[in-house]
Design a protein around this nucleic acid. Structure first.
Lengths: 355, 355
DNA sequence: GAGCCGCATGTAAACGTTTTCAGGTCCCCC
DNA sequence: GGGGGACCTGAAAACGTTTACATGCGGCTC
């Protein structure tokens, strides 16, 4: 026993039970009392500080075990400055979109590997919801955020970046701020897909795109246009239809194309949900794929092989996008002033039976 | 101007910028200084307390706007006792499983409606990961947790419940603790699906089930067995195969069934991912569905109509499960001692072309 | 043997809130 | 004109940490 001037426990409060009826969680103070040391010492053994002599350390560790002590992340976060909350945010448009679900898995796995927890939110392609969640994240003092910005000029995100919050963009980019970015070569992917359709002899090729303020949709449109131009195919504006990335809108737009006086013989759809919607429309009207209408889409889906017919798609390495984004975020948290990098991954054209 | 004894700002710290280079976030103290009131008063106007005279309130509100004040959820959570963090946890096995994705959306929407944020984690059907995330949630002092327990005797969850943490189970139940529970009539659903197969004249019906410690899988098996028994069909044990709920395992088990000397003519699969896997195996071996093998599954998926063939399934109201679970959780947070209730929703047999 | 240094530990401030309690002002009434 | 509410507001404690600084002790050096 150390013979410090410890004058016995100064607080023997009998009411250490909370309202819920459960036992109160042990705090640093409880541990310190039991080990007859100060809370500073306990904190030191917790933080692996080498400044504590083995004997004391032993006593404290015993007390920690006895009380089943767990540090409060909340208190810790309040006290420390940035970068040690071990909590990061992820905002995605829609978790039911397999592409984002896969990104989310990539992010989560990388986060878990570093023992970070994830605050995951769906913005629903809804600016107000995105703003709400961004505020929550700031107010929670997360260490950083991964997200596909709503559009290129997303103010809420830019403000947050200017605040110094580490942010990594995925999938979509931001024009007015230099953040880390993990993206896919959307232009090249679209080019490959449309070239494939052209190779199959199609010239009347429709385009079902998403919200046009989003960089990915625009890049893919650019790929579509350039592919046609390179072969001297003139584009018919009526064959280009813009939706909102959701399944229903793929269905509706496919129907619009079918109702045209001169419908296309092939269509390129810029994401998976709308591709599925388009396929559904074709089924419903008993249009044979690919004989009467060839379909190529962006984004692969896990059960593509079970679809009718299995669609030709530009496969994005979504898991990898998420994983690398999280790793960039961790690096930025460690070193906030590091220059921003952008990682561009290459997609792959997977040819199946819909073309 | 009130003529209080305010003696000027007592702290004019010039270094109010943080390490990241961004401007420091305004705190209660900053607002109080600017409005020439105490932090208590500011806190009172924030919390809508009526105890503050309109004139003061006006000044304070102006200062709040000027500084763009946002309260720190962290500090708030540290100070307050339970139930006001406006943060809840959701742990699901796999966000890439459409069933859980739909539950997650239900939970999220209900949470967002009540302005709660969601800490969402994937346990990956992995006990260690589940335990890690449960600890994070406790340490973050979330207000409550929604989850499908790993199995019926999930100790980590039971411990947390005994601690007084509000917990609502979804999908799967817990045998040793009385928590709120939102589930689906798994037995009835399975009964309906298997009866449907029997009605179609099948007697050799395979079962592809999941982990057998999970209540849902067991209930569905019970439905399968009882349906067969009620028609006097003897069960062949070799037709019953247990997997792990994942797509790959559906593929493998379907292949095992096909390799049998006397393969079944129909199969009932207990979740959607394994159903898709089974379908893939059938495609690969060019087995015609439903002519050579009828397939009925549990769980619907959004793009079922685009599958080949569109599968007959027992549709669970997953969104509703999530929504109601979150609502139960909110109620429990408000009133922790309320007796536990269990809500049982009824699934629906959707007959498509795989049977 | 006095001063000094180093080392292990304790003390207390700080993080940003909420909330209890006390104080101060104003008004009313006897 | 003083007693007493009613009503606002301020001071300060508390939540559970981390950490800069103070303290005390032992051993070393001259």
């Amino acid at each position: 026993m150390k013979s410090t001037g410890q004058g016995g426990s100064k607080r023997t409060d009998p009411k250490r039970e909370d309202a819920k009826g459960g036992r109160h969680m042990a705090s640093l103070r409880d541990v310190a009392e039991r080990a007859n040391v100060s809370i500073a010492t306990v904190s030191r053994v917790l933080n692996q500080s080498d400044k504590v002599v083995p004997e004391t350390r032993g006593t404290v560790e015993q007390a920690l075990r006895d009380l089943g002590y767990r540090p409060s992340r909340v208190a810790r976060r309040l006290r420390m400055k940035d970068g040690r909350a071990h909590l990061v945010g992820l905002i995605i448009p829609d978790i039911q979109n397999p592409f984002y679900a896969e990104i989310a898995r990539g992010v989560e796995d990388a986060a878990y590997a570093a023992r970070y927890a994830l605050l995951l939110c769906n913005s629903d392609e809804n600016l107000e919801k995105e703003r709400f969640y961004l505020e929550v994240m700031r107010d929670e003092s997360v260490d950083g955020i991964v997200l596909p910005p709503f559009n290129e000029t997303d103010e809420a995100v830019i403000d947050l970046v200017n605040t110094g919050m580490p942010v990594v963009c995925v999938d979509r980019s931001l024009s007015k701020a230099k953040t880390d970015l993990v993206e896919v070569d959307n232009y090249g992917g679209a080019l490959a897909a449309v070239n494939h359709l052209l190779d199959k002899g199609h010239t009347q090729i429709g385009l079902i795109e998403g919200r046009t303020q989003v960089s990915t949709s625009r890049e893919r449109r650019r790929g579509y246009l350039d592919a046609l131009a390179a072969r001297g195919v003139t584009v018919r504006k009526e064959l280009i239809r813009a939706g909102d990335f959701k399944q229903e809108s793929g269905r509706v737009l496919m129907n619009e194309l079918l109702d045209l006086k001169r419908p296309p013989s092939a269509v390129f759809v810029v994401n998976s949900l709308m591709t599925v919607g388009a396929l559904a429309a074709l089924h419903q009207r008993a249009v044979r794929v690919p004989q009467e209408m060839a379909v190529a889409g962006f984004d692969d889906i896990p059960w593509a092989e079970a679809l009718d017919p299995p669609p030709t798609v530009v496969r994005q390495p979504a898991y990898e996008v998420g994983r690398q984004a999280m790793e960039l975020l961790l690096k930025r948290i460690m070193e906030p002033s590091r220059p921003a990098v952008t990682v561009r991954l290459v997609p792959e054209l997977v040819i199946r039976r819909s073309t």
